[in-house]
Amino acid sequence: MRRKGLFIFMAAALGAAAPAMAQTSTTDEIAKYRQLLADGNPAELWEMRGEELWKTATGPKKVSLEQCDLGKGPGVVKGAYVELPRYFKDVNKVMDLEQRLMHCRMSLQGLTREQATKTPFGSAGNPSDIEALVSYITAESRGMKMSVSTAHPQEKRAYEIGQKIFFHRGGAHDFACATCHSVDGQRIRLQELPNILNKTNAQAAYTTWPAYRVSQGEVRTMQHRLYDCFRQQRFPEPAYASDVITAVTMFLAKNADGGVYNAPALKR
């Protein structure tokens, strides 16, 4: 009887451990899959096209973006992304990368807002110049540590607004960003859901965007990632390059401070 009881106990223990073992196994296999593809990440094609676009004179003014100031001086892209979003004195506001690119395309190249934000998210046969430019600029910060400032009052305010949005519940499902991203160990199907309130998780999540999405065959930027999150929560769709997105990005980026930037990455 004692042997039978021991057998039942061991079977129950193994049964309880099985989901955790399966989850770990799945996570490990996904990590191996990403590693196998990492050396041939298609995002490199977006990076090369983005560099060409950055240096090409275009728009009504027939100038390139090489004088665009991303925060470290006109034309400096090396290390710019790991310090964004940030306060820009010339416009008296906090901007993320895509907002700043839109501003430079309008002010330097003479594009209208509509032209500067045309096709923010690419699709088959309809590539996005913005996703290419973002890929190039972000790649120039690869290997550097995130260092986002909240020293300026407007930077601090953007962070606080982003934090409030992160925890705000609403929409048809009464969801918030925090519903999925404020608890350790959560997942949906095979997808891990990083806890953004955990610094290690926040660093690992933020520093791998933008990314080439295998399932979509496109590079997706942080703007797209957040837009898609709002869509899935059934929230009103935020306008492209809106201050709402910048505020949430500021919250995420600051939480990732100190993390080594490693993107454009590759994701499912």
Rank of each mutant, 00 (worst) to 15 (best):
R3S: 15
K4L: 15
G5M: 14
A11K: 08
A13E: 11
L14R: 08
A18P: 08
P19Y: 06
A20R: 10
T24H: 14
T24Y: 13
T27N: 15
E29I: 15
I30Q: 14
I30A: 13
A31P: 03
K32T: 12
Q35C: 05
P42W: 06
G50A: 01
G50P: 06
W54H: 00
K55L: 10
G59Y: 03
P60H: 00
K61I: 06
K62L: 09
G71P: 06
G71H: 06
K72G: 04
K72Q: 08
G73W: 02
P74Y: 05
G75P: 01
V76A: 01
Y81Q: 11
Y81V: 06
V82Y: 11
L84M: 15
P85K: 09
F88H: 06
D90P: 07
D90K: 11
V91P: 01
M95C: 09
L101N: 10
C104W: 04
R105M: 13
M106I: 07
S107R: 12
G110M: 03
G110H: 04
T112L: 03
E114Q: 01
E114K: 07
Q115F: 02
Q115I: 06
A116T: 03
K118T: 05
T119A: 12
F121R: 11
G122C: 07
A124F: 10
A124P: 00
G125C: 01
N126S: 10
S128C: 04
A132R: 03
L133I: 03
L133Q: 00
Y136G: 02
E140T: 02
S149G: 02
R157N: 12
R169L: 04
R169Y: 12
A172C: 09
F175Q: 13
A176H: 10
C177E: 12
S182L: 06
D184I: 01
D184Q: 08
G185Y: 06
Q186T: 13
E192S: 15
L193W: 00
P194E: 04
I196G: 02
L197W: 04
K199G: 05
T208F: 12
V214E: 13
V219Q: 00
R220W: 11
T221G: 08
Y227W: 14
R231L: 13
Q232H: 12
Q232K: 11
Q233F: 15
Q233H: 14
R234I: 13
E237F: 12
E237P: 01
P238R: 00
A241I: 05
A241S: 10
A241D: 09
S242I: 00
I245D: 01
T246S: 09
V248L: 14
M250D: 04
M250N: 05
L252M: 07
K254L: 10
K254C: 07
N255T: 03
G258W: 05
Y261C: 06
Y261F: 15
P264E: 02
L266G: 03
K267W: 11
